[in-house]
Simulated assay, not measured.
Amino acid sequence: MRRLATDVAGADEWRPGSHVDDRSASLSAGLRHLGGHDLTSGDEDTLPFLATAAVELGRAATTVYDIVQVLGGSPLVGGLAMYAQPNQLIALGNPGGYRVAAVLSSTPVVFADSLGVHSMDATEDEGTLTDGDKRLTAWEAATVGYFAGLASFVVDFATEHARSREIFGATLAHVDAVQQRLADAATTADALVLSAREGAHGLPALAHAASSTWDVMLHGHLIFGAIGFTMEFPLQRYSRRTKALGSFVDGWIDQRIGSAR
């Protein structure tokens, strides 16, 4: 899975003010070939394998299109959905789980990442999927794994930078404050990976993964300094993906809780 994710990871084509759809036919085909879609049954025995595979996708910051498809379609949040062109499905949260709807027409929206975000103009309710509960569980586990992969890569990347970057006659890794940030980031990322390998799912697991991964990104930016914000440097891609995907996850959680109330 790591080799596949690395081989098909595309260039970061997003620029401020642009609408970019990063779905990859090569990645989707590769996942089918490896049997990745066989892990989306939502069974407790397969969740750790699914989430662990998603960790590798997160480490390469690949498209999240295939993870979205585990749910059946992108979560609809505030009238927006990822990869939501006509004939695609979107997921509508409700207290009992969720329903899906077909996109009849939509408008591309400028967004903070390459998630193919569209505003819904017209949809048609498709009802509840027969395997909806299992799909929901599998999507939650895969999303936790993807966040864990994002965090894990940034910790490794920041550690490598701290060991090689010299300042005042020593490397950044010799600075106490940098060591503390690396330790905090590594502890958080390791906990996320361990959670993914256990198949963690549910709204609390989703909320924790999104929030904790953003904490790791903040540590990374403080270690890299201004260079971390440049478009030529990988860190901004990971922090953008964390914030953008987190906005959909957080919105989905809020809607599910609001509907339950």
Rank of each mutant, 00 (worst) to 15 (best):
P75V: 03
I227Y: 07
G79I: 03
D43T: 14
Y146N: 05
H208K: 15
S114G: 07
S18K: 03
P48Q: 05
L192W: 07
G17Y: 04
V154S: 10
S212K: 07
F111K: 09
I257K: 14
A91L: 03
R99T: 08
L218G: 13
S105G: 02
G246F: 07
I167E: 13
M217W: 00
G10Y: 08
D21E: 10
E56F: 06
G72F: 00
T188I: 09
K134Y: 15
A112W: 14
I257Q: 13
L194V: 14
A183T: 15
G258L: 10
D125G: 01
H118D: 00
G169H: 04
R15E: 14
G149R: 03
G58K: 01
G228S: 04
A61L: 09
G42L: 08
D184E: 12
D190H: 13
A51N: 02
L89C: 11
D45N: 10
L115D: 04
S18L: 05
E126D: 13
V193C: 05
Y146E: 03
R135T: 03
A148G: 06
G36W: 01
A91K: 02
S164N: 14
G79C: 08
S74L: 05
A191V: 10
A189C: 06
A112L: 13
E232D: 13
T63E: 03
D66N: 06
G78E: 06
L27I: 04
A142D: 05
L76N: 06
